[in-house]
Nucleic acid binder design. Structure first.
Lengths: 198, 198
DNA sequence: GTTCTATTTGTACTAACGTTCAAGAAATCC
DNA sequence: GGATTTCTTGAACGTTAGTACAAATAGAAC
């Protein structure tokens, strides 16, 4: 705010784009080699820039990792919010989002897990990592009133994501949805075979 | 095996102890600095031995990490099995075990998470990381017959552990137990209306 | 044009890394 | 005793890490 005229400083504007590029390159490195593979040099090489430019934007490696995790978390949070706002069957939407972790979204989910593991050790990252869980809790609160059910949905989401990342064969969406529904307390009896639920 | 006489080679015996010492030192380093802090040098310094001795027992860093994760996973698996065999209220036992992650067992749980995150990237570690989930599944199978409920308990366990590690204030055991029971289908209101909540 | 700020680059420094290796000490075997 | 296997050590190899810094470029302000 403050620059109601369309004029922007082309230098800082370019800087913003560079920053985003570097974060993107960082996520690519995390995806390929894990958080341990993130160095100023590897990130710079991934982005096709000199090492010192990466240092210019992120003075320490920690800054870089914090920014990368925040970026991933923001995307996930936004998607959950989209489900909350524009989706009717919210649990189904969450199930589909989680299920992506086994397929096209696997790399992102892996990066997110790598970085949120760092969060347990670095206090600066903790609020960011908690944000994801809070947005899932918000979604769950739209489905059930019981606080314990909300906690169960959040916990199940975490665990399902882990399972999807670690298991060889991906679980079907119906399974993910079923577990979430059960955690929410919406399901009493198991649907043997192909259930035409509700 | 094969040495039914009490005689053992004092050399290999000492070697076994050294191996265990190095693994213990590795876990201490993982606890303090994370998996990224594990180097032959840091581990050796932690154990009070020269670097080359760490290399003698674990030729590569990967060997060292695999051994460390296996060690942690074995302990957890054994504890779960103990609950399965000698405990009446198995879900309560699991809840108490998980709850330790917020207190005295926090370091171990952190190390376990650090290392199982590695498992998503290194196939050699995957069976080890899966072993923990399978033992929890076995416990859950003793509580419920429905496969989906078993999956829900496993997922909830993972998520609860994450929450206990990341949250500032530890959740009470009752809460952990409640979430597990709900995932197992022991607590959920069957359908809205029929359930008197508890 | 000049001046100022933001961005970009190449280079260089110290420290730590994984790993190798030859030689020494300890236990066992003959 | 000597021969052999196992464990232990210190030093060194080449590589890569984080970081610093001065010079160069690009855009904005004047």
């Amino acid at each position: 705010m403050g620059d109601e005229d369309g004029r922007v400083d082309g230098r800082t504007e370019r800087g913003r784009r560079r920053r985003a590029e570097i974060i993107e390159a960082t996520l690519a490195v995390v995806t390929r080699d894990g958080a341990g593979g993130v160095t100023h040099r590897t990130v710079a090489k991934e982005a096709g820039i000199p090492t010192s430019l990466s240092v210019y934007y992120f003075a320490t490696l920690d800054d870089l990792l914090v920014a990368a995790l925040s970026s991933v978390a923001d995307v996930y949070t936004a998607r959950v919010r989209e489900i909350i706002d524009h989706r009717d069957d919210k649990l189904r939407g969450l199930a589909e989002l989680l299920h992506e972790s086994a397929g096209p979204g696997r790399e992102r989910a892996l990066a997110e897990r790598e970085l949120s593991t760092l969060a347990a050790r670095r206090p600066a990252l903790r609020p960011v990592a908690r944000g994801w869980r809070e947005s899932v809790a918000e979604l769950a609160a739209a489905v059930t009133d019981e606080p314990e059910a909300v906690a169960a949905v959040v916990a199940a989401s975490e665990g399902l994501c882990t399972a999807l990342l670690l298991d060889a064969e991906p679980a079907p969406v119906e399974h993910v949805h079923g577990v979430l529904a059960r955690a929410a307390g919406l399901r009493a009896a198991p649907t043997e075979g192909a259930g035409r639920g509700r």
